[in-house]
Simulated assay, not measured.
Amino acid sequence: MPELRVAERCLDVATATNLLDSLLAGGIAVPYSCRAGSCHACLVRCVAGELHDGNPEALDAAQRQQGWRLACQCQVVSDVQVEVFDPQRDAAPASIHSCDWLSADVLRLRLTPQRPLRYSAGQHLQLWTENGIARPYSLASLPGEDPWLEFHLDCRQGGAFASAARAFQVGDGLRLGELRGGALHYDPDWQTRPLWLLAAGTGLAPLYGVLREALRQEHQGAIRLIHLAHDASAHYLAEPLRALAARHPQLQVELVCAAELAAALAELRLVSRQTLALLCGHPDSVETFARRLYLAGVPRNQVFADVFLPHAR
Rank of each mutant, 00 (worst) to 15 (best):
E3G: 04
E8G: 06
E8S: 07
T15V: 12
A16D: 15
A16Q: 02
T17E: 13
L20T: 01
L20W: 02
G26C: 03
I28H: 00
A29Y: 02
V30A: 01
Y32A: 00
S33G: 00
R35A: 00
H40M: 03
C46L: 09
G49L: 12
H52D: 15
D53T: 01
N55T: 02
A58Q: 07
L59E: 05
A61G: 05
Q65N: 07
L70W: 02
S78M: 11
Q81C: 13
D86P: 04
L102G: 03
R118Y: 11
S120T: 10
A121T: 15
Q123I: 02
Q123V: 04
G132D: 10
I133F: 01
P143I: 10
P143G: 04
P147S: 11
R156G: 03
Q157K: 06
G158P: 09
A165Y: 12
A165C: 07
F168L: 15
L174R: 10
G181W: 01
G182S: 13
Y186K: 07
P188E: 08
Q191I: 10
P194W: 14
A200N: 12
G201S: 06
T202F: 07
L204K: 02
A205S: 14
A205H: 09
L207K: 07
L207A: 12
L211C: 11
E218C: 02
A229C: 04
S233K: 08
A234D: 15
Y236A: 12
A243K: 09
A245G: 11
R247Y: 04
R247V: 02
Q252A: 14
A262V: 12
E267T: 11
E267C: 11
R269E: 15
V271N: 11
V271R: 13
S272K: 07
L278F: 09
C280D: 10
G281K: 03
E287N: 09
T288N: 08
F289A: 11
A290K: 12
V298T: 13
V298Y: 08
P299S: 14
Q302K: 08
V303R: 14
F304D: 06
R313N: 09
R313M: 06
